[in-house]
C-alpha cells in the first residue's frame, strides 16, 4: 500500500505539483475544443480557441504566482 501511495504521489507531484491550474486548465481547454468539434464548428476557429485557452491558462497561472 505504501508503494502504491508513493507511486501515485510521485506522478501527482510530477504532473500537478503546486500548480493544479496547469494540469486542469489544458484538460478543460481540450474538453471545450472537443465540444466545438462535435458541434461542427470550423477547424480554424476551434484550433484558434484551443491556442487562446492554453495561453490564457498559462497567463493566469503566472499572474497568480507573481501575485503571491
Amino acid at each position: 500500500m505504501r508503494y502504491v501511495r508513493a507511486f501515485f504521489g510521485f506522478w501527482y507531484d510530477f504532473l500537478v505539483g503546486d500548480r493544479p491550474e496547469l494540469f486542469l486548465g489544458p484538460i478543460a481547454a481540450l474538453f471545450l475544443a472537443w465540444l466545438m468539434v462535435r458541434a461542427n464548428l470550423p477547424a480554424p476557429t476551434t484550433g484558434a480557441l484551443l491556442f487562446v485557452l492554453v495561453t490564457a491558462v498559462g497567463g493566469l497561472s503566472i499572474a497568480w504566482a507573481i501575485r503571491d
Partner: peptide, 25 residues
C-alpha cells in the same frame, strides 16, 4: 489525445516557469 495532452500540460509547466525566471519572478 492522452499523450499529447500530457505533453501540453508538461510543456506549459516548463514554459510558465521559464517566463517567470526570465522575468525575474
Amino acid at each position: 489525445l492522452v499523450v499529447g495532452g500530457f505533453l501540453l500540460i508538461y510543456g506549459l509547466q516548463w514554459l510558465t516557469k521559464a517566463v517567470m525566471r526570465a522575468g525575474g519572478a
